Every structure is written in C-alpha cells, then in structure tokens.
Computed example of a mutant assay.
Amino acid sequence: MTEPNPAPLVDVHEALHAAQVVVFALATLAELRDSDTESHLIRVQQYVRALCGELQKNPAYADTLTPAYVETLAGSVPMYDMGTVGIPDRILLKPGRLTPDEIAIMRTHTTLGHDALVRAEKTLGRASPLLTVAKELALCHQEKWDGTGYPKGLWAEQIPLSARIVALADVFDALISNKVYKDGVSHDRAVQIITEGRGAHFDPAVVDAFLEVHEVFRSIAVRHADTNADMQQKIEYMANAIAEVAVL
C-alpha cells in the first residue's frame, strides 16, 4: 500500500514574506484612494529606519528601539493609514477645503483603522502581539506632542513612540511630495517646517534625530521618487472617482 505523500512543510520565512506582500498590496490600494502613491510607503518606511538608527544613540530610547522593534515598526508602516478606505470619496478626494462636518468624518480614519484590526483579532480568536505597533500607528499617527492632535488629544509621551516617529516621517513626505492638486516644497523648506514644529507637532527628540539625518531623508526621497507612471495612475484614478461622485 502506497503511503500518501506528506504535506509539504511551510517555510516560515516564505510565509512571513507572503504575509508582508499581502499587507503591502492592501495598503497600496488604500493609498490609491488617497493622494499618495505606493512609493510613499517605501519612503516612509526608510525614513522611519533612519530616525530609529539615530534615536538608538539616545539612552532614553536605546532600550525600546531594539532591532526586533525597529523591524516590527518598519513592517507596520503600510498599515498606519489603512482607515482611509472607510472615508467616502466625496471627502477623501475633495479638491477644495473640507467643511467642519467633513473634517470630523475624515478624522475617523484613525479609529476606523485601529478598530478594524481589533475586530479582526477578536474574530480570529486572539490578539496578536505583533499587531500592537500597527494598532498604535493606525490610532495615534495624527496625535501631536502639544495635545492638539486627534482622535484622543494625547500629548507628549502619552503618544506611543511608534506614532511619534511615523508622524514626522509622514509629514515630511507629505511636504516634499507632488500631489495631483499641489506641488511639494523643497527639502530645505520641509526641514524648516519640521524644525518649527519641534515641541508642538513633534516630539523634540525625534526632531533632533531628524536634523542629524535629514540628508539621508533627501537621498531616500530622490531614490524612491514618484515616477511619471505613478502620477498618471493617480491622476486617472482621481479623475474617474470625482466623475463618479459628480454623477451621484
């Protein structure tokens, strides 16, 4: 009697890579609905690594920013803005100024992303320690050091370190990137704006680390700049989405 062939062993590293690919693919779909390209996620991941490398020199952060933590943080970056998939196109893609009611809806993307992860954990039976950072980023990346951010108005070290790091990386990239509706600012102007936000929008220690590595940010932005194809895809998507909203 012939023995059945045993089930092939699953390569753990390959399974992890496949999961990362799926997460990144889903995240790029979310970015497609917003005004960013998938290159934005790659740039933010690399900015985060650069900031962590500098912050590791600070004794106050060295114990937290272990190699394993930095890898988890960088790997969680694609999920930080996932809640935007729950925001209607009429608001997400509106070219003009949002009304107060629209701003309130837009701000729910933080809780939408966080709550989706929590619900998924409950549905599948248990919380995953590996998603702790992802949940922090989804919920807290719009919080500000001085307490004027959202959704909870956290301030200073009430804000998770992960979110304080990604907040700066995200804002820097938003400043320098060309959008369908506006041109980005120069690198030097972006550095000035980030510096002016020290102690208000941003953790002072994270800004200090940024000022040490801002030229690394410049090189990352150049190396992973949006292509003409990226921008054309974005223009076409936004034009089609706006046309659909107008018909409705």
Rank of each mutant, 00 (worst) to 15 (best):
D146G: 08
I194V: 15
G147L: 09
I194T: 03
S162M: 01
V185Y: 04
V185E: 02
V180W: 10
L131Y: 04
A138P: 02
I176R: 02
A209V: 03
F217D: 00
D188M: 07
A167W: 03
A205V: 03
L124Y: 13
K144W: 09
A174M: 15
L124N: 12
S177A: 13
A134N: 05
G184Y: 06
L137G: 00
A134T: 05
L130V: 13
P160W: 07
C140D: 07
D203A: 01
S186W: 07
A127M: 12
V216Y: 06
V166I: 10
V216D: 11
G197T: 01
I176M: 05
E212L: 07
A209F: 03
H141L: 02
L161Y: 03
R164Q: 08
S186V: 08
S186T: 14
H214S: 11
V206S: 02
K179N: 09
A167V: 01
E136T: 07
W155M: 15
E215T: 12
N178M: 06
L161G: 04
K152Q: 13
I159V: 13
E215C: 06
L175A: 08
H187I: 05
T148D: 11
L131R: 04
A163Y: 00
A174R: 12
A134I: 06
Q142I: 00
Y181T: 15
V166F: 04
K179G: 10
H201F: 12
I159H: 00
